[in-house]
Nucleic acid binder design. Structure first.
Lengths: 185, 185
DNA sequence: GTCTATATGTTGATAGAC
DNA sequence: GTCTATCAACATATAGAC
């Protein structure tokens, strides 16, 4: 009796991890099949194309991001919410230094890809930008959009540099500076 | 009589442009050969491998960067030098929005590549960081390294966001904010 | 639903004539 | 030095038995 197995989820988990480590283009279906212990030919029962896997990975990351932002929104003040968000890069600083930001690496790679994945990955960055803008607006900042741009730029820039230098101290230092910056507003 | 033709330089120029537009992995030797109007098989007379082309492109970008930093260093004060450097992202903001930063895209892509190109591209980011640190030191800033990290993060982050959103206004806005930040130091 | 075998296309790289 | 033809490896995707 055909039942929904866990293979689809295993494939997605492997794909998510491998794409973080190697990038989308560099990650082959054979890599994903091997890591998730699903035969190569069977992958196509769960995903029509490689792009479909990428699409699902992006959707998963978007869902995870929304959950994170939702949790941060539980804080009492908008400033506390932004500060709470900064706990996340600290908690995954090892991964950020080793593989880069799971949003930024995807967005940067796929921004020049000729695929609908470009628009999907763009939504990841927009989600953070929009949420941040809301927080700055609620702080009665006249130029909330510009501040949100600065906030997210700091985070994306530090991830790129930390990854390039393979140094998680960059994360620690930059988050501390961003915290200080927020507290001066 | 065999003379050194301009084919090598044509190849490098095409490679540089295509790698900026598409990334290193995505750019094929056939792409480069076609764009530079050099037959595919002839490419290997000038470059032993594809990696060798990448290496030369990185070296060219490093040389170009050093020249830019050298020009900025002509300014009278360290603050003026940092402000002068900010003129460059403004001058190429269209390209930054369309293709991303020629240093950051390369460093981010190759940081996870299993190749000596990883170290070469890392040097691009280190060059900017070291120069920036020097300027902040000469401004008698106690934590010049942290400020340089913040400075370069802003620039790399804005390029990633501008490219993702395909919006050069991000460059204009963020550079303006960074100028203001420098003037408050 | 599952899996082996394989088709089909692309890419980095080489052989060898000129 | 130059260029055509082609190899060998790899990648996405499909066919078809079970």
């Amino acid at each position: 009796m055909p039942r929904s197995s866990d293979k689809r989820e295993r494939l997605l988990r492997s794909a998510d991890q491998l794409i973080l480590q190697q990038g989308f283009k560099q990650t082959t279906l054979a890599d994903i099949a091997k890591d998730s212990e699903v035969p190569l030919g069977n992958v196509y029962y769960y995903f029509k194309t490689k792009e479909a896997i990428g699409q699902s990975v992006i959707e998963d990351r978007l869902e995870h991001l929304r959950q994170l932002l939702h949790n941060c929104t539980a804080e009492a003040t908008p400033k506390a919410r932004l500060l709470a968000f900064l706990d996340y890069p600290i908690s995954i600083r090892d991964s950020l230094a080793e593989h880069g930001c799971p949003l930024g690496t995807l967005a940067y790679e796929l921004s020049r890809a000729d695929s609908f994945l470009r628009d999907s990955s763009r939504a990841l960055i927009e989600e953070v930008l929009n949420w941040s803008t809301q927080q700055f607006e609620q702080m009665d900042q006249p130029d909330a959009h510009a501040l949100a741009l600065q906030f997210v730029s700091q985070l994306q820039g530090m991830s790129l540099i930390a990854n390039t230098l393979n140094d998680d101290q960059v994360i620690t230092d930059m988050v501390e500076q961003t915290r200080h910056w927020l507290n001066t507003l």
